[in-house]
Design a protein around this nucleic acid. Structure first.
Lengths: 166, 166
DNA sequence: TGCAACTTCCAAATAATATTGAAAGTATTG
DNA sequence: CAATACTTTCAATATTATTTGGAAGTTGCA
């Protein structure tokens, strides 16, 4: 496969992949463009590579910076800003995981913790508390695992896990 | 908190949570309704609990059955079908994980495997292959971990992982 | 077989989300 | 400080996803 075609496919696929997760298509495509670019890109570069508007490019670049997936870089003698993606895939995974954990998982764990104490003494209430408690236990465990696995040494964790579990 | 209020909150939250993942809001809400119902529900029950149309209820019930999160059940002497959610949270987690792995992760792993062989000898091509290879490695590991963790004994895995990694 | 009682499908309507582009804002330079 | 080069914002617009409701299909029973 030609390099150009490969990059294109990657950008499309990464965009679709992102879309299925909380990340929107453009944001994932901008990320993909930066990931496969050997040089940092300017806003204009991104606009023209992906055929998107200035506002869109800017918005998604900012969001990627929020997610710690992209950094602003300065080029000597250049006034405008350039952007480059974090290329260490373990760091990418860590940042995405932590962000989603914080935004989605943690609030759910908190809510389930409250719900498992809902009032009522009849069978229905007991069944509900059991379901809530089970879900709370499950989500807490997942949360704890993700916390641990993204705290310091992701690479070690995943390598260890894939060995231990062979 | 009152039981009724608790159930409502759960249905809303589970719906929003699902929305952030590949599952749409109604599907997640239907699932939540069934999860917290002590009795199996009919299509009509679901429609009125959530204020959604027949078509919508039906479509999402079917989708939940596809995902193995819900079963049809027959009630003696009743013609219409009733639906009940799988209540074992480990099974729920397993089924959701496997489904999303199959739909999203596996195709990405496959694509990255191809892309890491893209043509070209210059620095740009080499950098691209490196990025693709790194991502392929990462996604393969995650895929392998999920495969293992959902194959037979999820509970053991998560317990083990959360202990080992303490 | 024909008639309910129910389920499924699907085109059209609606709602939610993403994108645009021009205007406003901000920093840098001469 | 004014001109310039750029970034950010946001209301309008376009796109995409979801939901509806009625028509078509199925099933079981008298």
């Amino acid at each position: 496969m030609e390099l150009h075609e490969a990059k294109d496919k990657f950008i499309q696929a990464w965009g679709a992949f992102g879309g299925q997760w909380g990340i929107n298509r453009s944001m994932a495509q901008v990320h993909a463009s930066l990931l496969v670019s050997p040089e940092p890109l300017s806003t204009e570069d991104v606009m023209e590579q992906l055929n998107i508007s200035r506002g869109n490019a800017n918005m998604n670049l900012r969001a990627l910076i929020d997610w710690h997936l992209v950094d602003k870089v300065l080029k000597a003698g250049e006034r405008r800003e350039f952007f480059q993606a974090e290329k260490d895939v373990w760091k990418i995974a860590t940042h995405i995981t932590r962000e989603r954990k914080k935004r989605e998982l943690e609030p759910m764990v908190r809510l389930l913790g409250e719900l498992k104490q809902a009032a009522g003494t009849n069978a229905e209430a007991k069944a509900f508390r059991q379901t809530a408690a089970d879900l709370h236990d499950l989500t807490s465990r997942v949360d704890a695992m993700l916390e641990r696995s993204t705290r310091s040494d992701v690479q070690w964790f995943l390598k260890a896990a894939s060995t231990i579990l062979r």
